[in-house]
């Protein structure tokens, strides 16, 4: 029996190996991708993003506990940054996990491997793999990010932005970027002073403008992942968003968004690799010396890329 069949049949070891094949990319990954069955259930893909140390992993630990408690299975992908110098990475999100000796839980750590926006190159395919083997919930935790890492919304159905108290004044909440993308804002560390202020400011931000009926009316919830308070409320909001999505057909499917994201990022990565080549350096030198202008330089780089 092939590895895909074994993984679909519930063999977790086969699933772990397939995840490695998918992560490595190349022809073998394409073969796996092509042979994945249609997901047997309507998987909800939940993205969790926010600054480093906000408690994203600890919240996921509590969500795993809550999903298991009601009999749902759940996979989580934890993305941490790769070193721009050595390519190495410390993947430390499992530290926050309790012992889940249950085959309905599968946790996997991914290094960002040089891709920006807090995600790993394989993220979209990993999500597809875990959905195909039947996980009803797939949680994606981004690298700890700041203000402008908004790509996660392209890969998931439900975006959760984790915030903590005392990150700044109300002007911070007015800024464009990550605070625009959430379906659910979770203010963690609600046991600390300032959390009610953070909740109030986020709610005020959401009410500043008239809500767009084509978008889910974003919610704000306060939790303490360390104490386990507020998690049920988060869970019911995630369910509410899932039901809302089912009732509101969007113009693009998540598969389309994922594929588009992958192709754009892949081309960006190839341009990045190209930037180490001699031809690219020659264009850079001409741009600096004024031998060619920015538009001409861009055209030459495009030709180099096509010629690869």
């Amino acid at each position: 029996m092939g590895m895909v069949d074994r993984a679909v049949g519930g063999d977790r070891r086969a699933l772990a190996r397939l995840a490695s094949v998918v992560e490595a990319g190349g022809d073998a990954a394409d073969t796996v991708y092509a042979s994945l069955p249609t997901p047997p259930v309507d998987t909800q893909v939940i993205g969790i993003t926010g600054p480093p140390g906000a408690g994203k992993s600890s919240i996921i630990n509590r969500l795993v506990e809550a999903y298991l408690g009601r009999g749902d299975d759940v996979a989580a992908l934890f993305i941490d940054p790769s070193s721009p110098f050595t390519g190495g990475a410390v993947l430390g999100d499992r530290i926050r996990m309790d012992e889940w000796a249950d085959d309905r839980v599968f946790l996997r750590s991914l290094a960002s491997r040089g891709w920006e926006s807090g995600l790993a190159p394989s993220t979209a395919f990993m999500v597809r793999l875990f959905a195909a083997v039947g996980f009803e919930r797939v949680i994606v935790e981004s690298v700890g990010v700041g203000q402008d890492a908004v790509d996660i919304r392209e890969l998931v159905d439900t975006v959760v932005v984790v915030q903590v108290p005392n990150l700044g004044d109300t002007v911070q909440t007015l800024k464009a970027g990550i605070l625009e993308i959430a379906d659910l804002y979770v203010v963690n560390k609600s046991d600390l002073p300032g959390s009610q202020t953070a909740v109030r400011e986020l709610n005020a931000l959401l009410r500043l403008v008239e809500s767009d009926p084509s978008r889910y009316p974003a919610q704000v919830r306060a939790v303490s992942a360390s104490r386990g308070t507020g998690i049920e409320d988060v869970l019911s909001t995630l369910d509410h968003h899932r039901a809302w999505l089912a009732d509101h057909a969007t113009t693009s499917t998540s598969a389309e968004r994922q594929a588009s994201w992958y192709l754009r990022k892949r081309l960006q990565a190839e341009v990045h690799e190209l930037s180490a080549a001699d031809g690219f350096r020659a264009v850079t030198a001409d741009l600096i010396s004024g031998a060619c202008g920015a538009t001409e330089a861009t055209r030459r780089v495009r030709e180099l890329l096509v010629g690869r």
Partner: peptide, 28 residues
């Protein structure tokens, strides 16, 4: 190991043998 270019999963303290093995399997 990170500085040597490896991807290192650190599980933290107080791991049971079963937790270590399950993490090793899931992380391949």
């Amino acid at each position: 190991l990170r500085d040597a270019g490896m991807e290192v999963i650190y599980t933290g303290l107080f791991q049971t043998p079963e937790m270590v093995a399950r993490a090793a399997m899931q992380e391949d």
